[in-house]
């Protein structure tokens, strides 16, 4: 006769397994945060400015938070791919996103992705401030913003940008609207190809962030900085603001590289969240960060800390600006 049910040995194994799972799970949940390496999602490609910045910051931060960081790069669809993957990761604080607030909030408005801001995540700290600029080749026919505007009144001047949802693109479009010049914006799908187009003379000018063009500073001339005041006069070689050059008052445009974490983690784990934020603040204040920043070819003068409240306000402001100029950015106007 066949025996019904499970043998004693099977039952014993099941009990042991269940015990291991329960105790193991509890051990994981009780473990001090962070209990494992932190994964960093970068919504741009490797080798770019964000890659360098993340490398610099995490080299210092790991000493304060006690674990290592592992970056993965998920470029695509102007950063949407990285943000979508980030929003699907467990809300345990072991996945962070290193992004650039302004371009990625513009992407959020223009592409209407499936994640929700600010419901899904919070920017808990900003680490730099990088102004949008327009530059031309040093040996090209256009040498000032006045030249560019004058030329733009005669013919559409070509301006390279990394992508349409970008604050420097919007800055150039608003400048065109304010001056009556025709700017033909050409998205190159990345900062490097856009800068190459500017250096090779395929386009008349390039609009981008200042820091990413400093490698070529000896070959280019910064003709306008989209800020109310130029705080980087020496490195931009006195690039004028729109007001100084053309008497035009414009909103300020620039990028702010920032860190984001799941909102659910922030709400449900206030102590762990505080530990995360505090450890970042300590890393930011460590003089070693300046050295690491220099090591990756970035200028420490761009370093600027902003807390959660300030970072979130910047994101909200960018969303409002992008909403206001949505039609222009979608090429419908």
């Amino acid at each position: 006769m066949k025996r019904k049910g499970f043998s004693a040995a099977v039952k014993m194994i099941c009990c042991v397994l269940a015990w291991v799972l329960v105790i193991g799970g509890a051990a994981v949940s009780w473990a001090e945060y962070p209990s494992k390496n932190i994964s960093v999602i970068v919504p741009t490609g490797e080798g770019g400015a964000m890659d360098r910045v993340v490398r610099a910051v995490t080299n210092v931060w790991k000493d304060y938070i006690g674990v290592n960081f592992q970056s993965t790069f998920h470029a695509g669809a102007s950063g949407e791919v990285g943000y979508m993957l980030f929003s699907k990761r467990p809300a345990d604080g072991h996945t962070l996103l290193a992004g650039n607030i302004a371009p990625e909030m513009m992407m959020y408005v223009l592409q209407e992705p499936d994640f929700k801001f600010p419901d899904d995540f919070v920017y808990f700290a900003c680490m730099d401030s990088d102004p949008a600029v327009l530059w031309v080749r040093k040996d090209g026919p256009i040498q000032t913003i006045q030249d560019l505007v004058e030329e733009g009144k005669k013919r559409p001047v070509t301006i390279a940008t990394s992508r349409f949802p970008h604050p420097s693109t919007l800055a150039a479009l608003l400048l065109a609207e304010a001056t009556g010049a025709q700017f033909n914006i050409i998205p190159y799908g990345g900062g490097n190809p856009a800068r190459t187009a500017g250096l090779t003379g395929e386009v008349d000018a390039v609009t981008t962030f200042l820091s990413s063009s400093l490698d070529f500073a000896s070959d280019v001339k910064f003709i306008v900085m989209f800020q109310n005041e130029n705080k980087w006069k020496d490195i931009s070689r006195n690039a004028p603001t729109p007001k100084e050059a053309l008497g035009i008052q414009m909103p300020e445009f620039g990028g702010n590289r920032a860190w984001a974490v799941s909102r659910e983690f922030r709400e449900k784990n206030p102590e762990e969240y505080t530990k995360l934020v505090d450890s970042f603040r300590k890393a930011f204040d460590d003089p070693k960060l300046q050295d690491e920043w220099k090591k990756v070819g970035m200028d420490p003068r761009f370093l600027e800390f902003k807390n959660e409240e300030e970072s979130m306000k910047m994101a909200q402001d960018m969303i409002e600006t992008a909403m206001k100029y949505k039609e222009i950015l979608k090429g419908k106007k």
Binding site: E46, G47, R55, N192, D215, S218, K295, V296
Partner: peptide, 27 residues
């Protein structure tokens, strides 16, 4: 010669050059 990484491998090389403070491009 120009400091422009033409592809993915060159972009990684650029990271190493920058980390060592090597001036790229004509310099």
């Amino acid at each position: 010669t120009l400091g422009i990484p033409g592809g993915g491998t060159a972009a990684v090389m650029l990271v190493v050059l920058q980390a060592h403070g090597v001036p790229i491009g004509p310099r």
